[in-house]
Amino acid sequence: MGMAAAEAESGGMTEYIKHHLTHLTVNEGQGFWAVHIDSVVFKLSIAALFLVVFITVSRRATSGVPGKFQAFVEMVVEFVDGLVKETFHGKSRLIAPLAITIFCMVFLENFLDMIPVDLLPLLGQKLGVAHLRIVPTADLNTTIGMALCVFLLIQYVGIKHKGIVTFFGEFVSAPFHAHGPVGKILTAAPNLLLRLIEEAVRPLSLSLRLFGNMYAGELIFILIAALTLGSSLAHVSTYLFGTAQFIAGFVWTAFHILVITLQAFIFMMLTIVYLSMAAEHH
């Protein structure tokens, strides 16, 4: 961990933290049209890495004796496939590939948090990049983008499995079931309200949970890195804080390995569950 080259250009911890939490932005100051180019670039890099590896291994996959790397990929594939088969009892060509994409992508994106928090921003600064946030999932835009995809897929799977009439019928006929025309009219409004809340809450909770965890994790790393901010080797306190920084950094990194894996798993699992629910009749 470094003692922040960012320190040089400004003063104090607040500035340091603020700097670390600012995205590299194209179209800055244009409101909605601003693009967090660092999130996009890192996401695309991770995507390229994942796609190249996964598709190469899949294409070369043999049904004979697998190599070690194929065995590793198959392990992940079977883990995800098992989860999907346990949860979703219908037939779907979409859910399992979607689930493994979510798991691997979210995990790899989260894993960028394991890189020392000052390392890439420092390199970036040498190359003339003012701000750099390397963890795409610590950007609310990324997680909302994924959650909206999942939201749209939920609607798609619902319509595909139930037919358009049943699908929209359920907006007003469930969860409260009524018999007779009066009851149906009376329950329609609350049903619709509940359904809309339910549909809105899902992408919101998906995206906020992942974002919150990753943002908080990154912030802790920044705070740990800031322990030795502006210190000099001449002061005794530097060694004390340095030791504390090392221990805290080690502990939080170890703990964070669990968090990033768990968050990837939760995002995947909830997606599987939502899609399964969408495919089932109420």
Binding site: F32, H36, S39, V40, P136, D139, N141, T142, G145, M146
Partner: peptide, 8 residues
């Protein structure tokens, strides 16, 4: 921002 759309 529009980053949502790109990432999505």
């Amino acid at each position: 921002t529009v980053t949502i759309v790109i990432q999505g």
